[in-house]
């Protein structure tokens, strides 16, 4: 694991990715010191639709709320939703992939066919409907992301387990009388753990996207600030017909930057993993 880390830190794309992620993490942690106003502090106290200025870096929204404050505090919501759902869906994906790959048979059939079906169903409309009927809240958004976030992880882990299963050291452990559970968690899981890490990172990018999309059509948490919600306001109140460019460009740029950073780091981990696999 520490070897992987050393190898990762030697790559330029990873360093760039880490720096960007660190940038957003810093914003989330020190939001109170970075933003001159609290979220919704200037609401109804300031003129609506102000252009960017020294007082309001990104201008104000339809209620006179400071958009820069919304952006900064939105980082917290976005990171919380993305991290939580990425960790949970990767966890479920690894367990499903382990079970399917290790046991095969009926368990594999059920899990694999479920994955086949979920790959065909239009997930975005389904997520919209689920979020709509479950009601708008952060936890429902996380639930809706997790329900479909495990699929890719499960597929990849399953195929990895299928090949690891036949390695001699697994055979050796079995002949020593190790139980199924012990083999799975003690001997196979470490083999796919760096892959798991890669998918936590990659799932963050999916989660950011879904959270933004749901917030954009008004299904986000009604209280929490978020980048998708900023874009929802910008669209609903016609920011593009008023030429309020900062309101539109900056939140989307944040979504894109964070997503690119996670994809770069995630792909780098997978890259190192596959090169190691080839050497085995």
């Amino acid at each position: 694991m520490s070897d992987t880390l050393k190898e990762l830190l030697r790559r330029n794309d990873v360093l760039v990715g880490f720096t960007i992620i660190l940038f957003f993490a810093t914003i989330a942690v020190f939001a109170d010191y970075i933003s001159p106003y609290g979220y919704r502090e200037t609401m109804f106290n300031e003129k609506p639709f102000l252009e960017p200025s020294m007082e309001h870096f990104l201008g104000t929204d339809q209620w006179g709320d400071d958009l820069f404050a919304h952006l900064i505090y939105g980082t917290r919501t976005v990171l919380f939703v993305a991290l939580t759902s990425a960790v949970i869906s990767t966890f479920i994906g690894i367990i499903a992939g382990l079970l399917a790959g290790f046991y095969g048979g009926v368990i594999d059939e059920v899990i694999s066919r479920t994955i086949d079906i979920l790959l065909i169903i239009p997930i975005i409309p389904l997520q919209i409907i689920l979020a709509y009927y479950l009601g708008p809240s952060i936890w429902n958004i996380i639930l809706v992301i997790v329900l479909f976030g495990w699929i890719t992880v499960a597929r990849v882990v399953r195929s990895q387990v299928l090949s690891i299963k036949n390695y001699p050291y697994i055979e050796a452990a079995r002949s020593l009388g190790a139980s199924n559970a012990r083999i799975m968690f003690k001997h196979i899981l470490p083999g796919v753990s760096s892959l798991g890490l890669a998918y936590v990172v990659l799932n963050i990018s999916n989660a950011i996207y879904t959270e933004a999309a749901l917030s954009f059509i008004g299904l986000g948490d009604p209280i929490a600030p978020s980048w998708g919600k900023m874009l929802n306001y910008a669209y609903t109140y016609g920011a593009f017909t008023k030429g309020l460019w900062a309101w539109i460009i900056v939140p989307g740029l944040f979504i894109m930057l964070l997503s690119i950073a996670t994809i770069m780091v995630g792909n780098a981990i997978i890259d190192i993993y596959t090169r190691r696999q080839r050497m085995v």
């Binding site: 996207y209 593009f240 939140p251």
Partner: peptide
């Protein structure tokens, strides 16, 4: 490819409106 994958499709739409329709 990596940027297009990361940019929300509704954001791309809004930027195209802002630049090609508004400006």
């Amino acid at each position: 490819a990596i940027s297009a994958w990361s940019a929300p499709v509704f954001w791309i739409a809004m930027i195209l409106i802002l630049v090609l329709a508004y400006y």
